[in-house]
Design a protein around this nucleic acid. Structure first.
Length: 419
DNA sequence: CGCCATGATTATAT
DNA sequence: ATATAATCATGGCG
């Protein structure tokens, strides 16, 4: 804030000077001007300069009086015309100094950041109220919101300070601008001032003030950054989901392997069941999809496990109707099972899970590919990665040729491990 | 401590 | 807006 203070003082200085000029533009007492021209005028000018140099020492009342004296001075019209002439000469340089400043990229950056952080955006309530609302809104999934409430409280604190200061500056700027404009209007009685000049002056003032505002924005950004690094990084401190949550997510994933893209509603339900947030569910599925796809071999075991789990569920559902408790003999014994069966079972599960996944094509894929997989994986593979190629939505990344050797060494595909 | 698993973030494409 | 892919950074195990 040092810089700001300094600038304010600078501006205050200008202000003072302006004040004084207004009052102090006085001609010396009319003496000696009718003598020999040369010396008398020099002395006049010397007096004027002296008075100009000492105007800040004069009181306002005094200055007011002198101003009146100046306006009535008989030399005034002459002085005015001289000033006009001088102005004419310097006009070019002033006109040449016209600059259309483009929007400062730094300022834009700061603005964008403040907006993104919700500091400069629309008001969303203040302080504790916002935090409480946030905490209440997400109700059950307390974990996240409680950590957030503190963050939000601090953020809105920053936000409040920011807005207060900004408003203060804006007000000061307007006040000062008005003042200067009045001043210039007043002065235009004694010296020529074009509207353009006033405009220019106003522009200068605004630039000054916006540079002060930039300081404010800068410090606000810094504060937010610090806050973020403290809270967000803390939040980034990863906590593994509970075993149960992972179970539920995996169950969903493997039972919708052909299209592991839970709808918004499904995500909400999973989030509720797992006591995590919807975005965490999205993260999880995003990570899971990419990691599954990247190294299918690694997930075979898991896939089988959850296939079995789901199969048990399916069995429970079907058992009553079918009256066949030994529907899945492999669950109890280590005996092998035939792949066509597993394919069928998979299809059954799909339909049981309400997955509206097309059947015929996948069936064909199962038939044509599972043999190769079971060979490569040493058999007993419930799932094959055919979904990747069979289903349009679940990307076709792994081509059969590359997939048929999913047992490749770790790290060859997985860039994740190269950190 | 090194390594891998894993949740979160970022960059990019659609 | 959502998905993928890459990457970051930590948790947890041996």
């Amino acid at each position: 804030m040092d810089e700001q203070t300094r600038m304010l003082q600078t501006l205050a200085g200008v202000n003072m000077a302006g004040h004084s000029v207004q009052g102090g533009m006085t001609l010396p007492p009319p003496h000696g001007h009718d003598g020999t021209d040369g010396d008398g005028r020099k002395q006049d000018i010397g007096d004027i300069l002296h008075q100009i140099m000492t105007i800040t020492d004069q009181s306002l009342d005094e200055a007011q009086a002198k101003k009146h004296a100046l306006n009535c001075h008989r030399m005034k019209p002459a002085l005015f015309s001289v000033l006009c002439e001088i102005k004419e000469k310097t006009g070019l340089s002033i006109r040449g100094a016209q600059e259309e400043d483009p929007p400062d990229p730094q300022l834009m950056r700061l603005d964008n950041m403040l907006l993104a952080e919700g500091v400069s955006g629309p008001e969303k309530g203040t302080g504790a109220a916002a935090a409480a609302a946030a905490a209440a809104a997400s109700g059950g999934s307390s974990d996240n919101s409680i950590e957030h409430s503190d963050y939000r409280a601090k953020l809105s604190q920053i936000r409040q300070i920011y807005h207060t200061e900004l408003e203060k500056y804006e007000q000061a700027c307007n006040e000062f601008t008005t003042h200067v404009m009045n001043l210039l209007r007043e002065q235009s009685r004694t010296r020529p001032i074009s509207p353009k000049e006033i405009e220019r002056m106003v522009g200068i003032i605004h630039r000054k003030f916006s540079s002060i505002q930039m300081q404010l924005k800068q410090s606000t950004c810094e504060a937010v950054m610090i806050l973020r690094s403290r809270f967000l990084d803390a939040r980034r401190k990863r906590r593994n989901f509970s075993k149960q949550a992972t179970e539920i997510l995996n169950e969903y994933f493997y039972s919708h392997l052909s299209n592991p893209y839970p709808s918004e509603e499904a995500k909400e339900e999973l989030a509720k069941k797992c006591s995590i947030t919807v975005s965490q569910v999205s993260n999880w599925f995003g990570n899971k999809r990419i990691r599954y796809k990247k190294n299918i071999g690694k997930f075979q075991e898991e896939a089988n496990l959850y296939a079995a789990k789901t199969a048990v569920n399916a069995a429970h559902a079907v058992a009553a109707a079918v009256q066949n408790p030994s529907l899945f003999p492999f669950l109890g014994s280590s005996g092998s099972f035939n792949l066509p069966n597993s394919g069928d079972m998979y299809m059954n599960m799909q339909s049981l899970n309400g997955d509206s996944y097309q059947g015929a094509q996948v069936g064909a894929n199962v038939q044509s590919q599972t043999g190769g997989y079971s060979d490569a994986l040493g058999g007993n593979s419930l799932y094959s990665p055919h979904h990747l190629t069979a289903n349009g939505g679940w990307h076709e990344a792994a081509t059969p040729s590359s997939v048929t050797s999913p047992t490749e060494g770790p790290g060859s595909v997985n860039s994740d491990t190269s950190n």
